[in-house]
């Protein structure tokens, strides 16, 4: 019997070859009437002054601006892994809203979790597991 093969699928390593930004869509919602949307809207408008620049810098993201009447303004990021993240930006100034938008853009969309190990890798450890049978023999 010659050698046979097992079926497998290669795994993606985003950023090793090509980098795909994980945020694929952002929705900016605001209310035309309420004061909490002031930073988003007319007078100190994020939508008017910052958003065009933001959209130009990030062409990978589909940007949607839609009214959300009688509710607080939000920014919603939709990610490639299927999840979405929402940040409420009520009462924020134009610069603070921009920071929130950048936060959503840079997020991977994964749930936040505490990282305790210094290295996360698909590869096996180079050194391998400790073996008592190799290396120099310890003399007592």
């Amino acid at each position: 019997m010659p050698v046979s093969a097992l079926q497998a699928v290669s795994k993606s390593r985003n950023g090793v070859g090509a980098f795909i930004l994980q945020c694929k869509r952002m929705e900016f919602n605001f209310c035309d009437w309420a004061g909490s949307s002031k930073g988003m809207r007319h007078d100190r408008s994020f939508l008017k002054h910052s958003l065009p620049q933001f959209a130009k810098e990030n062409p990978q993201i589909e940007i949607i601006v839609a009214p959300r009447p009688n509710k607080i303004p939000i920014i919603r990021g939709v990610y490639i892994n299927g999840r979405e993240k929402v940040i409420a930006v009520d009462g924020l100034e134009i610069q603070q809203i921009l920071q929130k938008a950048q936060l959503l853009r840079d997020s991977s969309g994964a749930k936040l979790k505490r990282i305790t190990k210094p290295v996360i890798s698909l590869n096996e450890s180079v050194r391998g597991m400790f073996s008592p049978f190799h290396g120099e023999k310890h003399v007592i």
Partner: peptide, 21 residues
């Protein structure tokens, strides 16, 4: 484009072998 999107993916070829004898 092929190098960046296909060959950059991770595949352990040594895990594909299934020896019988």
């Amino acid at each position: 484009f092929f190098r960046q999107h296909v060959l950059s993916r991770k595949l352990d070829i040594d895990k594909l072998f299934n020896f019988v004898q």
